[in-house]
Simulated scan of single mutants.
Amino acid sequence: MSKLSEQDIEKKLLRFPDWEYFDNAIHAEFEFDNFRDCFSAMSRIAFECEALNHHPEWTNTYNILSISLSTHDAEGVTEKDFKLAEAIEMIVEVQE
């Protein structure tokens, strides 16, 4: 999978208002009502990651989930990252 140009990334991000591009990755932060809801979303996201064979760099502190996506093999952001971001958005949206 080939690395997207910065212009292509910025254009695609118009569909993902919760996400930003910096440090050669797309990033988002999601806040949940409590730790349980955050961890539940992470568990659901993990199943999507496995299905796509694509895994984020993420951290969770209590009710905050921070996610960074990039494709290490391509050394940047690819379509694969946006596909996973879309799945994450759908999971987070259901949680809200």
Rank of each mutant, 00 (worst) to 15 (best):
residue 92 V to F: 07
residue 39 F to M: 11
residue 24 N to M: 08
residue 18 D to Q: 15
residue 64 I to N: 14
residue 36 R to S: 12
residue 87 A to E: 14
residue 35 F to T: 13
residue 82 F to S: 02
residue 90 M to P: 05
residue 54 H to D: 08
residue 45 I to N: 00
residue 47 F to S: 12
residue 26 I to R: 00
residue 70 S to K: 09
residue 6 E to T: 15
residue 24 N to V: 04
residue 75 E to W: 00
residue 40 S to K: 15
residue 30 F to C: 10
residue 20 E to G: 09
residue 43 S to D: 10
residue 33 D to F: 09
residue 63 N to P: 10
residue 46 A to I: 00
residue 87 A to I: 03
residue 8 D to H: 07
residue 50 E to T: 06
residue 9 I to E: 06
residue 53 N to D: 15
residue 55 H to D: 03
residue 23 D to N: 09
residue 54 H to P: 00
residue 76 G to R: 05
residue 20 E to Y: 05
residue 90 M to L: 14
residue 51 A to M: 06
residue 56 P to E: 04
residue 29 E to N: 05
residue 22 F to L: 06
residue 38 C to R: 15
residue 93 E to L: 12
residue 95 Q to N: 06
residue 68 S to G: 01
residue 61 T to R: 11
residue 80 K to G: 03
residue 34 N to W: 08
residue 67 I to M: 02
residue 87 A to D: 10
residue 28 A to H: 10
residue 58 W to T: 09
residue 83 K to V: 09
residue 86 E to D: 12
residue 54 H to Q: 02
residue 91 I to P: 04
residue 58 W to F: 06
residue 93 E to P: 13
residue 68 S to W: 05
residue 24 N to T: 07
residue 11 K to V: 14
residue 59 T to R: 13
residue 13 L to A: 04
residue 36 R to E: 12
residue 79 E to T: 00
residue 65 L to R: 03
residue 51 A to H: 05
residue 61 T to N: 10
residue 34 N to S: 01
residue 40 S to L: 15
residue 81 D to M: 00
residue 85 A to F: 01
residue 11 K to E: 10
residue 60 N to F: 07
residue 4 L to M: 11
residue 72 H to A: 04
residue 92 V to I: 13
residue 36 R to Y: 12
residue 9 I to L: 04
residue 32 F to I: 11
residue 49 C to W: 02
residue 89 E to F: 03
residue 63 N to E: 09
residue 64 I to R: 15
residue 74 A to V: 10
residue 92 V to P: 10
residue 68 S to H: 01
residue 51 A to W: 01
residue 61 T to C: 09
residue 43 S to V: 14
residue 4 L to E: 07
residue 66 S to E: 12
residue 16 F to W: 04
residue 67 I to P: 00
residue 90 M to V: 15
residue 42 M to K: 09
residue 72 H to D: 08
residue 55 H to I: 05
residue 60 N to T: 05
residue 43 S to R: 06
residue 10 E to I: 14
residue 88 I to W: 00
residue 26 I to Y: 00
residue 69 L to H: 03
residue 39 F to L: 15
residue 6 E to C: 07
residue 62 Y to F: 05
residue 31 E to P: 14
residue 81 D to I: 07
residue 47 F to K: 12
residue 93 E to M: 03
residue 23 D to E: 12
residue 18 D to C: 13
residue 93 E to C: 09
residue 29 E to A: 14
residue 96 E to C: 11
residue 19 W to F: 08
residue 40 S to G: 12
residue 66 S to T: 09
residue 96 E to G: 12
residue 84 L to G: 06
residue 2 S to I: 05
residue 47 F to Y: 10
residue 27 H to A: 03
residue 28 A to C: 01
residue 78 T to R: 02
residue 22 F to V: 11
residue 78 T to A: 05
residue 55 H to R: 00
residue 96 E to I: 12
residue 49 C to V: 07
residue 63 N to S: 05
residue 38 C to W: 03
residue 69 L to Y: 01
residue 17 P to T: 08
residue 83 K to C: 05
